[in-house]
């Protein structure tokens, strides 16, 4: 009797484990993609982007729209969550920095999305006009974490753009994990206001990136 029960328990346990494994296999990490030269040069308009579509999307009422995941405005980044939207968007800086010469290794070294420590978008100062030395600011929501990818120093012309090359993990509007590295602010002709980034959107919901 004892033996039978034990056997049953073992079979049961095996079944559960197998089903668990099967479940994990379904949650594959997403494809790594690059999006280059996204136009974000407007001071007044944000450019919205969907990780699942892999392209920009038109958004009229960003705070009530779930079709976008991330948005760009000059060097600023907005995520669909917190003060910026109804989605589950939030961000964390993994602390991993992509260094020149070891880009591929540094990128793959972030294998797992952190469990907690994410920050949601809050309202802060955003530049809405910049002519000559005149700067106009407005209170708008944006991601205080993801916007640290760049420092723009305009104390002496020409402006100095410093990229910090941090790898962030952000959550899309649907709450799925995205590994993100924003690495360029200029287009093919080196005109400023065009953003290039590498991302891995785990459509499966997996928190693992490799």
């Amino acid at each position: 009797m004892m033996k039978k029960l034990n056997l049953l328990a073992l079979v049961c346990a095996l079944f559960i484990m197998a089903s668990c494994e099967k479940d994990e296999e379904l949650k594959l990490p997403g494809e790594v993609k690059d999006f280059k030269f996204l136009e974000a040069k407007s001071y007044t308009e944000w450019t919205y982007f969907s990780f699942s579509k892999g392209d920009t999307v038109n958004v009229t009422d960003y705070q009530n729209d779930l079709s976008w995941d991330i948005a760009f405005h000059r060097g600023d980044i907005r995520l669909n969550g917190g003060a910026s939207g109804k989605g589950k968007g939030e961000a964390i800086n993994t602390g991993v920095i992509v260094k020149e010469g070891s880009e591929a290794d540094d990128w793959t070294s972030v294998t797992e999305a952190p469990k907690d420590g994410y920050s949601k978008d809050e309202v802060g100062k955003v530049t809405i006009a910049f002519t000559g030395a005149n700067i106009e600011e407005e209170d708008q929501p944006f991601s205080q974490v993801a916007s640290t990818w760049i420092t723009i120093d305009i104390s002496n012309p020409p402006p100095k753009y410093t990229y910090h090359h941090s790898i962030y993990v952000v959550k899309a509007a649907d709450g799925k994990y995205v590994k993100l590295w924003v690495y360029d602010y200029k287009n093919e002709k080196n005109a400023a206001g065009y953003v290039s980034f590498r991302y891995q959107y785990n459509e499966s919901g997996s928190s693992t990136f490799n």
Partner: peptide, 19 residues
Amino acid sequence: YGTGDIANISSTGIEQEVS
């Protein structure tokens, strides 16, 4: 020496200094 507005964009937007 330099004159004029000295502005500095930080991660939280722009802080404008006095002219």
